[in-house]
Design a protein around this nucleic acid. Sequence first.
DNA 1: CCATCTTTGTGCACGCGTTCACAAAGACAT
DNA 2: ATGTCTTTGTGAACGCGTGCACAAAGATGG
Lengths: 255, 255
Amino acid sequence: MATGRTHRPATRSRGIPEATVARLPLYLRALTALSERSVPTVSSEELAAAAGVNSAKLRKDFSYLGSYGTRGVGYDVEYLVYQISRELGLTQDWPVVIVGIGNLGAALANYGGFASRGFRVAALIDADAGMAGKPVAGIPVQHTDELEKIIQDDGVSIGVIATPAGAAQQVCDRLVAAGVTSILNFAPTVLNVPEGVDVRKVDLSIELQILAFHEQRKAGEEAAADTVVPPVAARKQPHSTDQGPDGDVPAVMQA
Amino acid sequence: MATGRTHRPATRSRGIPEATVARLPLYLRALTALSERSVPTVSSEELAAAAGVNSAKLRKDFSYLGSYGTRGVGYDVEYLVYQISRELGLTQDWPVVIVGIGNLGAALANYGGFASRGFRVAALIDADAGMAGKPVAGIPVQHTDELEKIIQDDGVSIGVIATPAGAAQQVCDRLVAAGVTSILNFAPTVLNVPEGVDVRKVDLSIELQILAFHEQRKAGEEAAADTVVPPVAARKQPHSTDQGPDGDVPAVMQA
DNA sequence: CCATCTTTGTGCACGCGTTCACAAAGACAT
DNA sequence: ATGTCTTTGTGAACGCGTGCACAAAGATGG
Ligand SMILES: NC(=O)c1ccc[n+]([C@@H]2O[C@H](COP(=O)([O-])OP(=O)(O)OC[C@H]3O[C@@H](n4cnc5c(N)ncnc54)[C@H](O)[C@@H]3O)[C@@H](O)[C@H]2O)c1
Ligand SMILES: NC(=O)c1ccc[n+]([C@@H]2O[C@H](COP(=O)([O-])OP(=O)(O)OC[C@H]3O[C@@H](n4cnc5c(N)ncnc54)[C@H](O)[C@@H]3O)[C@@H](O)[C@H]2O)c1
């Protein structure tokens, strides 16, 4: 069951901290918006506000990429867009396969934001033979039997899993065996992968449960305040909100 | 534009660290599976393997909830399921509204994992008048005009935003004004919310970009190895993989 | 050319989270 | 009852991430 692998604490990729990497897409999005409005330069303060982060943090993040700013002026928007894109590897094309074309898989296939930035849906794959050939979002669904061939032919290195949880590990194993080294997993399971394969997960259920926790806590504080303080009308007054640290990086690791 | 709010660094909720809260749902899932197999007790080592975490971390996490383990034996599965459920606020019912019933919103509405654990879809809301009344996943879609009424009548405190990015902030404002204090945002935008409101985001595009970064890095190292080492056949051999730290907590913060 | 003003880049300190390692607690056998 | 063996609970050390605060850099104006 357990592969008995030791977990390495997120080796700093190339001087760029993981937390910074997770924020780069955020900056890129804000910068792209500025670029579309033909804004030539932006200060760390402005950009930080747009991205929802601390300006010092932003400057430190950029300092890992090199010094692209001009003191007294700010950062050149276009240049920064290019630098971040390059750093994230978005200047090249990443073919992606989506496995499991059900409700969610179909939604993902239809998602426009995919193609917009270097990602190309190379294939849609499903185990249901009845779906084979049917186009979803203009792309014909292919049967799972073709999985290995597709991945090897197109040189796919990123796979998205949107199958039921029970099938996820098996699909994952096949993807990895065929050469995929990065997986985005929507199924609510912990995936077991060999070293060298990155897994990131998106788990709706977990997100909701975390929200519920804070929601309950707010309600609890509110109630406490109401009982301690005389019978004032019930008003929500959580004395300390946290919106959760922004330091993203949601991923799994395996046993 | 920016509300100029200062970001508080994730106030420790009640002695329970944010990182721990983010892992509780993971433990709960693993425990539920054990419970269904009628496993009476589990050791920290086993459970940690199932949840994909370090056993010491798991024990420390549980220690924040109190001491529910028995030395030499392990943890009582049923009891732990109950304790974690209670801690997460899953023993009560959380009505949730989904706003924006397009590709993604419909998929979410159809998602079974919602109801399974304390979450109930109270309403589906869309701005498209043509959709009003049409049932999605057995629930009739209601028009945005009804938003405030629905939230207040049903006492909804959790909202899911699945509208296009352009509408997200506006929808968010209305949700908050109507009384929602927790938001799960699927739109690729930084949401601005007043203090006391929790926002978590799920951003497919960002996840893919992070994967692309690591993918590029692996390719780079591979290439470097190939050029330094004599012309051996190209084989992927990333010398240090990180699967990303598991310390989840993907959320936004606002400017 | 010098002064002033803006904004970057970063040294530093602090706090959170992770992990190791081990003492204490309890189960179980004798 | 006593000893052994397993597993918890946690003290302590360490490393990463964050944010403050400021010196240096450069732009701009006189
Ligand atoms: N729908 C959502 O909003 C949502 C939200 C969060 C998580 N999820 C998770 O995403 C996954 C998919 O959800 P969904 O609602 O789209 O489910 P779904 O049942 O609609 O779709 C699953 C698809 O996977 C296919 N499939 C099954 N086994 C397969 C295999 N071995 N190889 C290839 N394809 C296979 C099925 O034919 C089906 O088309 C589930 O694990 C679910 O828990 C869904
Ligand atoms: N589809 C995906 O897989 C996916 C993935 C990641 C992110 N997203 C994001 O999720 C959001 C929704 O994606 P989608 O593919 O479902 O888009 P979609 O266009 O299919 O659906 C959007 C829905 O929102 C409704 N809407 C628009 N404005 C509204 C308003 N003010 N109030 C209420 N409803 C409103 C529209 O009528 C439509 O039904 C987008 O922001 C998208 O970027 C989608």
